[in-house]
């Protein structure tokens, strides 16, 4: 308990307020939680990732669950061999011609479909404001006169 507390107050944002400390030392409940949160700001500001250790272990756990593919290379080479021998067969070429014919018709149909997609009515942004882009602009552009204020209203709109 004492060690924990001294670790907490080591932070740069220590208020040097002894009364605060006493209250925290006596309590285990909500005040203690508040104190922890307060110090978390310091950690975040300093760039210490509060959740880093947890994150690493989570990633490791997920990696462990991934199946290991031992010989994908071998599988591929067998397939390649089969394809090569196919070209030598005469029957292959007659089949190939009909496949090409079907493919041609198919492609024409596909092109028509994409053309249809292009005709899809565009949305006028005047009617439907893409506020997510506004927020991203305010977050990453260097001069954020508005960003921390406007963000509020965009969250309210949602």
């Amino acid at each position: 308990m004492k060690e924990q507390l001294s670790a907490l107050i080591d932070g740069e944002f220590d208020t040097n307020n002894a009364d605060h400390l006493l209250i925290v030392a006596k309590s285990d409940g909500e005040l203690r939680r508040a104190w922890n949160t307060y110090h978390m700001i310091g950690d975040v500001m300093r760039g210490d990732s509060v959740f880093e250790t947890q994150m690493t272990s989570r990633i490791m756990a997920v990696l462990d669950q991934e199946p290991t593919v031992i010989a994908p290379q071998a599988v591929r080479s067998v397939q390649e061999n089969a394809e090569k021998s196919m070209f030598k067969k005469t029957a292959f070429w007659s089949v190939a011609a009909s496949v090409m014919a079907v493919l041609f018709v198919g492609l024409m149909l596909l092109q028509q479909q994409t053309a249809d997609q292009n005709i899809m009515n565009p949305v006028e942004i005047a009617e439907n404001l893409p506020s997510e882009y506004l927020t991203a602009h305010q977050t990453y552009a260097p001069n954020g006169a508005a960003y921390y204020i406007q963000n509020v209203s965009f969250t309210e709109q949602r």
């Binding site: 899809m120 565009p122 949305v123 552009a141």
Partner: peptide
């Protein structure tokens, strides 16, 4: 002092493209 953001993303099937202009 003034800044502009340009967003580019591939168009997706079924999502209507956005066009036009707006001042806020």
């Amino acid at each position: 002092i003034a800044s502009v953001s340009l967003f580019i993303e591939p168009m997706k099937k079924g999502i209507r493209p956005k066009m036009g202009h707006k001042t806020v």
